[in-house]
Design a protein around this nucleic acid. Sequence first.
DNA 1: CGCAAAGATGCGTGAGACGTAAATTTGCGC
DNA 2: GCGCAAATTTACGTCTCACGCATCTTTGCG
Lengths: 211, 211
Amino acid sequence: MVILVSREGERPGLRERKKQETRIALSWAAIRLAVERGLENVRVEDIAAEARVAPRTFNNYFSSKGEAIAARHLDRARLIAEELRRRPASEPLWEAIKIAVVTQLAMGEEYDAGQPDQQWQTGVRLMISEPSLQGEMLKANAIAEDELAAAIAERTGTDVARDLYPRLVAGAAGAAIRVAMDQWLRADPPVPVRPLIEDALDRLAAGLPEP
Amino acid sequence: MVILVSREGERPGLRERKKQETRIALSWAAIRLAVERGLENVRVEDIAAEARVAPRTFNNYFSSKGEAIAARHLDRARLIAEELRRRPASEPLWEAIKIAVVTQLAMGEEYDAGQPDQQWQTGVRLMISEPSLQGEMLKANAIAEDELAAAIAERTGTDVARDLYPRLVAGAAGAAIRVAMDQWLRADPPVPVRPLIEDALDRLAAGLPEP
DNA sequence: CGCAAAGATGCGTGAGACGTAAATTTGCGC
DNA sequence: GCGCAAATTTACGTCTCACGCATCTTTGCG
């Protein structure tokens, strides 16, 4: 995956900031170009050019076009775990998860009430439509799910390594989010995402009773 | 993915049978070699040689080494949906799912009571350990999950395209299976899988209450 | 027994992933 | 400010791949 290790407690020096900017620039460039001309008509070289870096540099950040494209989604998905950690401990777990997910979705929200930002949506649609990118999206989801599991373990005082519980909840929540998202993207007269997400998570918490 | 379309209602002529055999031979060869010398030291050429086919033929079956390795797991995972369809309609859904999963796991069972067959286990371990294969395993799981969703929709009279329900259940069940499996593979004094799977699925059906 | 279709091969090409070493830039202490 | 050591970016070269296309073989069937 990433070669340039961004050690955690790194203070935001010019160096780190620039690295992050390059990473994001490469990622958006990859998405933009892939949407414009189709993934197969985009060479790594093009992406690098678009981001004003040397071709070889692309591979210092990502090990494939797919990874670059999924990076934006990954960063976004990670925020869910981060947000969950911020929720007060008094909140019931499922409630906290629901809020964390919805909050994260609302992040880049624009004019259109309740609709996540356009660019991210474009990226997700791209990943869903191009078969060769589906694997990358799944990988991103898996990574985000791991972080979510860690956050859940922390919050519930369970152990990610020993207990099934945190990973089970994270996995189920991840599945719910994926399904809701998918439904949302397919919806032909467009519908708001939030209700879908909430419905999916509520059903999970209810033990998935037959409808 | 696969180029050679195996049309469904195909009767098992010599042709089809041989194709299937080649596919499986390539897949096992890939796994065996990867386990023996490490994935990076296995060239497509080697796998083809091991399966007694021309190098070019490998790519007629799989589009990458990873796909070949995941194929065995995929075929196995698909059986769950197939088994679910065989369960009597009178059985409660979760019960049926549990049985379908356990039955499938028991398939290649050997001497050691309750432990799935060695080769498959080896393959799964390989996919978990090699980062570059994790994506392939996730893809396989996703495909199997789709089929499971279809089977669930059929059984519950819901619609995969319109209702969240079938995909939600399939996704949650898939997550439960993954988590249980993972726990099982990590367990240091080895433990039987079945209880883990059943525990995970039971918790799902119970709404994942905090422990 | 013979033909049409399906599959297996061979060959050639365009890309990609990545090791390595040289060139550049940044962070910092003096 | 200045200069050096560490972190990054680049340039190059190499090794595999994935896959299109043309051709040779094998299989299924009348």
